[in-house]
């Protein structure tokens, strides 16, 4: 799906493996890094990755996530979680109903404006992803599809490579602070390395409408989780 898998990995490790969330998040970050290495290869082979966009988005997302981490202590995440829950539902529905022929609001033909907007949006995504505690994939795919006019396959391919760099930056911090347990990570990395390739091959061959429906279900699930968490933290 080009999402990274943290949305599935963290609940799995906390609920089924009994890991503390503080231990599960760093493990999921390093697993995402390996997962993107394996899952993005089939997308690269089929030219479904815009590498220029990967560099721009990653660059500003990493900066944004540092800003997000720094301001997280002074901003209440509860309201943000509720707002993002609503935005996620809206984006999911829009992705399903959007017609392919519509002209994208942001295009490379716009020259410098394109790069400024792409950088600015990526920065905001990085800040908010860090504030609500999610990887960027769930935000990047709708943005690439709805605002940048990418096909759903290109959006997933580009996202699959992008999130690896953002996850790597977070994983380095966790690792050097001793928060990443390598013994817990080894079997997870093994599973993700194998599963990522299978997912990448299945993803590149999947029909767009099937992908959109699966994506909508995942987005609704995340919206529900974010919304519930937000109301709990209010």
């Amino acid at each position: 799906m080009g999402l990274g898998g943290g949305v599935i990995m963290v609940p799995y490790m906390t609920i089924f493996l009994g890991m503390d969330i503080k231990d599960a998040v760093p493990v999921s970050m390093i697993a995402i890094v390996v997962g993107t290495l394996s899952s993005s290869t089939p997308y690269l082979k089929k030219s479904m990755v815009d590498t220029e966009q990967v560099v721009i988005i990653s660059l500003f997302m990493v900066i944004g996530s540092v800003i997000g981490s720094l301001v997280s202590s002074v901003i209440s995440s509860a309201v943000l979680q509720i707002i993002f829950s609503l935005v996620t539902v809206y984006a999911g529905v829009m992705m399903l109903v959007k017609k392919g022929s519509e002209k994208p609001p942001i295009h490379k033909d716009h020259g410098a404006r394109y790069y400024v907007l792409a950088g600015g949006i990526s920065l905001v995504v990085g800040v908010f992803a860090a504030l609500v505690g999610l990887g960027g994939g769930i935000f990047i795919i709708p943005i690439l599809y709805l605002l940048f006019g990418k096909s759903i396959d290109e959006a997933r391919g580009t996202s699959s490579l992008t999130i690896g760099f953002a996850a790597a930056a977070a994983a380095i911090v966790y690792f050097f602070n001793g928060q990443l347990d390598p013994t817990a990570a080894a079997p997870v990395i093994l599973g993700v390395a194998a599963g990522g390739t299978v997912g990448g091959h299945l993803g590149t061959g999947a029909r767009p409408i099937v992908v959109k429906i699966i994506f909508l279900v995942i987005m609704l699930y995340i919206a529900y989780k974010l919304g519930m968490e937000g109301f709990k933290n209010l």
Binding site: V66, I172, F176
Partner: peptide, 14 residues
């Protein structure tokens, strides 16, 4: 530059 930003942001975070 992205490489440098990742290393620098990791250092700041650490």
């Amino acid at each position: 530059i992205l490489l440098l930003v990742i290393v620098a942001s990791s250092a700041i975070g650490s």
